[in-house]
């Protein structure tokens, strides 16, 4: 008998919840200690309480706006500059060294830079989110452009197409499968960085609220924050995957 994939996936999540419940309700202390760790029921109650209040939605909305703004900027600039660097020797020579120097710097280490550069916290957090998502998109676009079969471009050029045609009809559609890999990674890194940035310098947002709960020793609140972040991250990555699959249905495999 074949078990449907959805059932297995649901069972996996439920199993983890059950394990968590057993470990905490039995107050297990085996080097790692679960005796003071909040259990899933306690966290669920706290979750329910937060869902009644407006603060939770305001925080989630704030984080989502930051993520989507930073991610959208990273997608547009990452794809545009990735194409430019791969297709123009001049753009490559000018930009590539800057990118290579900036790329190893963890986006979260840019917090001091963001504080110096931007008048408001909000812009700084979006900037950090943008930087985090930008490099995966840039690098995957650059590789995808270089991997494009030359024959498509040759075909369009011998049918009378110029530079703009080649860009619009060959390069942009052709790099999509590779670009979506980068967008997927970028979305994941963007969440890590938006949450960290909120913890360091935010006034609102899921990351800020989670840290806030920790400072007042509200452990169930911390876990509610973490679970919220996890679910939001899953949702947004899933959306990227879905759009990516829709747009690259022409692929052979």
């Amino acid at each position: 008998m074949r078990v449907p994939a959805v059932a297995v996936r649901a069972a996996s999540l439920l199993g983890a919840l059950l394990g968590w419940h057993l470990l905490t309700s039995a107050n297990v202390r085996l080097w790692v200690r679960f005796d003071r760790f909040p259990g899933p029921l306690e966290v669920a109650r706290e979750f329910g309480r937060q869902l009644q209040a407006g603060q939770f939605y305001a925080d989630v909305a704030q984080s989502v706006v930051r993520i989507l703004t930073g991610f959208a900027l990273a997608a547009v600039l990452g794809i545009a500059l990735g194409v430019a660097v791969a297709r123009s020797r001049w753009a490559g020579n000018v930009l590539q060294p800057l990118f290579e120097v900036a790329r190893p710097i963890p986006a979260i280490a840019l917090v001091p830079v963001a504080i110096l550069l931007f008048p408001a916290n909000e812009q700084g957090i979006v900037f950090i989110t943008f930087v985090a998502a930008f490099f995966p998109v840039l690098v995957s676009t650059r590789h995808a452009v270089r991997a494009l079969p030359g024959v498509w471009e040759d075909a369009v050029r011998t049918l009378g197409g110029g530079r703009a045609r080649v860009l619009a009809q060959v390069v942009l559609p052709g790099v999509l499968p590779g670009v979506f890999g980068g967008l997927s990674v970028g979305m994941g890194v963007a969440w890590i960085c938006v949450i960290s940035a909120e913890m360091i310098s935010g006034d609102f947002g899921a990351g800020y609220r989670t840290w806030q709960a920790y400072t007042i020793v509200d452990y169930p609140g911390v876990l509610v924050g973490m679970i919220t972040i996890g679910l939001l991250g899953w949702l947004t990555s899933g959306a990227v995957e879905l759009v990516g699959r829709r747009l690259t249905r022409w692929r052979t495999s």
């Binding site: 040759d154 075909a155 559609p173």
Partner: peptide
């Protein structure tokens, strides 16, 4: 116009 051996159609 140039006609190629294979895979010159835009696959999308």
């Amino acid at each position: 116009a140039l006609v190629f051996q294979d895979d010159a159609l835009l696959p999308w």
